[in-house]
Deep mutational scan, measured.
Amino acid sequence: MLDDRARMEAAKKEKVEQILAEFQLQEEDLKKVMRRMQKEMDRGLRLETHEEASVKMLPTYVRSTPEGSEVGDFLSLDLGGTNFRVMLVKVGEGEEGQWSVKTKHQMYSIPEDAMTGTAEMLFDYISECISDFLDKHQMKHKKLPLGFTFSFPVRHEDIDKGILLNWTKGFKASGAEGNNVVGLLRDAIKRRGDFEMDVVAMVNDTVATMISCYYEDHQCEVGMIVGTGCNACYMEEMQNVELVEGDEGRMCVNTEWGAFGDSGELDEFLLEYDRLVDESSANPGQQLYEKLIGGKYMGELVRLVLLRLVDENLLFHGEASEQLRTRGAFETRFVSQVESDTGDRKQIYNILSTLGLRPSTTDCDIVRRACESVSTRAAHMCSAGLAGVINRMRESRSEDVMRITVGVDGSVYKLHPSFKERFHASVRRLTPSCEITFIESEEGSGRGAALVSAVACKKACMLGQ
């Protein structure tokens, strides 16, 4: 009897593995994704193909990295998701002549009506938060230079001027797309009239992360975010950046690689679950690469896999709870928690219980395998993109072996128990001629924006502006 049951459990697990095998990517698959990513990057950089390229390769006008001589107080704003952060950054000489960066910050959550109302409502709310922060720190009387981390696709015309191309991540505030974001912020500050600010720089969160990590390690020339969304930036040779005049030196390019796949480059790798996630998203047909990796989508992918296993009578005796059938019910943090389970399955059992399920031991094991399959594919897909960037940098610099540091931020990278190990191992397999160091950014977005502002202020002083 026991043997029969054991055989049935083994057969069930084997069927589960057959279904989950769809998520496995072979090294040849990853090399294919990497080569296609490089081709799209090239198209994004070139003037004649930029418009139709899915990977936009947006110039950021960040050319210099901090040298350690900029000092002063800077205000930093960070808008990239449902939370908005205001930070005071003091850049100065530390002990023994070292450079020191001290920060104080406060988080504000953005109400739904500000995210989806008008641009005026959104930026009025942001300036209200700045006003509140300055009151708390008794700094209303000071006109501070301000660095703005704005983590949406922007076409820069200068370091302090950028046109919002399109909202992502659930934002829909009308009247912002096609307009200068810094102008919208300046107008809102003017409307309030109770404080003055000098907006000197606007950067993407990947750029802010790279600059913040450069402060720790001067070989950091790539910034990457794996959180709600997924994106990367890197220092490109100016001669390859056709959208900006000049051939000397390097400029940081914001790849906006989340949109890779929007022209069909990933079609052969998309599964039924991916198509369902895409169809029910706020932007169907867009940001397809990001939807395979980002935390906004990972939990939902797992939920759809679990429903398939229920329908195949391989999980929960073929019956799903009402909660499990509800879109968004299986949160991405559950994926991390399930994979963090120590082996007694308590954590998995508790999560499934909150979803109205009474799982068996085998159910718990199957749910864990589903989570591992989805998150491992995410790590491997992400590795193909980064390997594409790094191999490109090595080739354009004609280096036999390139040493490089990548600064990384984002909740999936930082909080998932195995993502970074799987990701690092896969990147290294795909970049055999590179020695890569990964560092995690601390308060990256805010500190990085302030350091970019410090560079901009120093330049302005040198130019006598």
Rank of each mutant, 00 (worst) to 15 (best):
D3L: 01
D4R: 09
D4G: 12
R5Y: 11
A6H: 13
R7P: 12
M8E: 11
M8P: 10
A11I: 13
K12S: 15
K12Q: 15
K12W: 08
K13T: 11
Q18D: 03
Q18C: 11
I19V: 08
A21T: 15
F23I: 04
K32A: 03
V33K: 01
M34E: 03
M37I: 14
M37V: 03
Q38G: 02
R43M: 12
R46V: 09
R46N: 09
L47R: 14
L47Y: 11
H50G: 02
H50A: 08
E51N: 11
S54G: 13
S54Y: 05
V55T: 03
K56T: 04
K56P: 09
M57R: 00
M57V: 06
T65F: 07
E70D: 04
E70R: 06
D78A: 10
G81V: 13
T82R: 13
R85P: 02
V86E: 06
M87I: 05
M87T: 07
L88I: 04
K90Y: 02
K90L: 04
V91W: 05
G92W: 08
G92H: 03
G92T: 07
E93D: 08
G94K: 04
G97L: 09
G97A: 10
W99E: 04
S100D: 07
V101K: 02
T103F: 06
K104G: 09
K104I: 10
K104C: 11
H105W: 15
H105F: 04
M107L: 09
Y108K: 02
I110K: 02
P111K: 13
D113Q: 12
D113P: 15
T116F: 12
G117W: 13
A119M: 11
E120V: 05
E120F: 13
L122E: 04
L122H: 02
F123H: 03
D124V: 04
D124Y: 07
I126K: 01
I126H: 03
I126C: 07
I130L: 14
S131F: 08
L134K: 02
L134F: 05
D135V: 04
H137W: 03
Q138C: 11
Q138Y: 10
K143M: 02
K143D: 01
L144T: 07
L144M: 12
L146G: 12
G147Y: 00
F148S: 09
F148R: 04
F150Y: 10
F152P: 14
P153W: 13
P153E: 11
V154L: 11
H156E: 14
D158H: 10
I159F: 12
I159C: 10
G162P: 08
I163A: 11
I163N: 07
L164M: 03
L164S: 14
W167P: 10
T168C: 10
K169Y: 12
K169N: 11
K169D: 10
G170R: 11
K172Q: 03
A173E: 08
G175C: 09
A176T: 15
E177C: 12
E177D: 05
V181D: 11
V182I: 13
G183S: 08
G183Q: 06
R186S: 08
I189L: 09
K190V: 14
K190C: 14
K190E: 05
R191Y: 04
F195K: 01
F195Q: 02
M202Y: 05
M202G: 03
M202T: 02
V203E: 00
N204S: 07
T206N: 04
A208E: 12
T209Y: 01
M210L: 01
C213S: 08
C213D: 00
E221H: 05
V222I: 02
G223N: 01
V226P: 02
T228R: 06
G229E: 09
G229V: 12
C230L: 02
C230F: 13
N231D: 13
N231K: 08
E236V: 01
E237M: 11
E242D: 02
V244L: 09
E245T: 05
T255V: 15
E256A: 09
E256I: 13
A259I: 04
F260G: 02
G261Y: 10
S263W: 02
S263Q: 03
S263N: 10
G264E: 04
E268I: 05
F269M: 03
L270R: 08
E272D: 04
D274V: 04
L276A: 12
V277N: 13
E279L: 15
N283K: 13
G285Y: 12
G294I: 06
G294D: 15
Y297K: 15
Y297S: 10
G299N: 10
V302I: 03
V302L: 05
L304E: 02
V305K: 00
V305S: 00
L306D: 00
L309W: 04
L309G: 00
V310P: 00
V310L: 04
V310E: 03
L314F: 10
L315G: 06
F316V: 12
A320L: 14
S321Q: 11
E322Y: 08
Q323F: 08
L324I: 07
R325Y: 13
T326Q: 14
R327Y: 10
R327D: 09
G328A: 14
G328L: 10
F330G: 01
T332L: 10
T332D: 10
R333S: 04
R333D: 13
V335Q: 07
Q337A: 07
S340H: 07
T342Y: 01
D344F: 06
R345C: 06
K346I: 05
Q347M: 11
Q347W: 04
L352P: 01
L352G: 01
L355T: 04
L355R: 03
L357Y: 08
T361L: 06
D363H: 00
C364F: 03
R368H: 12
R369W: 04
C371W: 03
V374N: 01
S375E: 09
A379P: 09
M381V: 10
M381S: 07
M381A: 12
S383T: 13
A387T: 09
G388N: 09
I390K: 00
I390C: 08
N391S: 07
M393R: 12
S398L: 10
M402R: 07
M402D: 12
M402I: 09
M402N: 10
V406W: 00
G407L: 02
G407F: 02
G407I: 02
V408F: 05
V408P: 02
S411D: 09
V412I: 04
Y413P: 08
K414I: 09
K414R: 13
K414F: 12
K414L: 14
L415F: 06
H416L: 15
S418M: 07
F419V: 04
F419H: 03
H424P: 10
R428N: 14
T431E: 04
P432H: 15
P432N: 14
C434V: 07
C434D: 01
C434G: 05
F438V: 03
E440A: 07
R447K: 08
R447Y: 14
R447D: 15
R447A: 14
V452R: 06
V455W: 09
A456I: 10
A460Q: 08
A460V: 09
M462H: 11
M462F: 13
L463D: 14
L463F: 12
G464H: 12
